[in-house]
Design a protein around this nucleic acid. Sequence first.
DNA 1: TGCCTCGGAATCTAAACCAC
DNA 2: TGGTTTAGATTCCGAGGCAG
Length: 391
Amino acid sequence: MSAEQSKASSSASSSPHEAPQPPPPVAHYAPAPYGGHYPPPGPYPPMYAYPVPDPAHHDPNNPNGASPQPVAPFFMAMPPPPPGMVYAYTVPPPAPGYPFAPGMPAPQPPPKPKRKQVKMACTNCASACKRCDEARPCERCLKYGLAETCIDGVRKERKKGIKRGPYKRKNRAGSGEAGADQSEGTEAPSEQPAAVPPPPPGYPIPAEGYPFPYVYPPMSYVPAPPDGQQHTEGANGAPPAMPHPFYPPYPLYPHAYGYPGAPPMAYPPIIPAPVATSPNGTAKPDSTSAPPSANGASASSDPVKGKKRSKAKNGDEGGRAFKKAKDASQGDVQQQHSLPNGDADVAKEHPASQAQQPPPPPYTSHVEPATGPGPVPAFGGPEPRPLMAAM
DNA sequence: TGCCTCGGAATCTAAACCAC
DNA sequence: TGGTTTAGATTCCGAGGCAG
């Protein structure tokens, strides 16, 4: 499942519709744009992205009292922000159970990454209610040997002549962002902290989903020209055209990324650390990127949300008995091994196709290539996580 | 226990509506 | 005419439940 999804999503991200976009060009840090030195002379003490595991510390995500997973901490030697600079974004929330730095916004549940749908699923995927992709045959049909039956369904024509009630105009006080937001499907206004100042004129706006905070000088701040050089600012005293638009992220608290059990981060939406999947699934960053828990913990995690089931949807071939009977009688159709709803039978005939799928790279399925930079390769190694290559 | 099924939330998309 | 809103159509996530 997860492998299938990750594969599908990865292929979708490589489709012509959603060609992965490279991250925005990174302006390399110019060491002396100010009168003083920035960054201040090092070396900096290593800043761990999460606390060094303490044998005496019991991870709250390991309810059995197990010690934290021995994941090597990665550290970031980060200079403090340059004088007069402010981060345009706040840093992600800390891992559960850890305090907030003073002044940090209250913890919020990380917003679920928006689901991306294909325009038209193939008939096989549609009948199986499984993820499809734009390619024909799609990944799933290829995987299950249904390539020949992987065709687009026929989208039903929308009913016409349906009358509607009076429109409720959305609140467009915020300079008319409602429409654009709706069409874009983003919830940026509610996700961006209100304290984040807009970039000053002349400074670029970071691409949506850009993984690291930008820093801008405050609106009135103009960096002191180094060594008496003249400003290259434009007219009206605007800041110079992007001398260096941002600086490396500064972890305000020492466990921004990668702490085992840390929730998926609202921002940036990337780079999972080697997450230790706890037995009760509490550390599961996303079920789409994690293999189903062996004991069905996810299924039983919320007993309140019971679902009713019927054996057959719309009286179709819903049950296994029906499928089996159909198989027996129609073994030659679907290339002798599959029903349109290919999962069950294909899985039986190709058990390895599911069982031996390598675990998917976490989070890759949630990169939004259409709106943000390309997927950032997940950091999978235990060694200290490298800083951004462009830094 | 693992896998399959399918309910329903999330998303897409085009028709209807509205302002200019 | 173009932009916005609404709602039908569709996708597919994820939890319940069954077969082995």
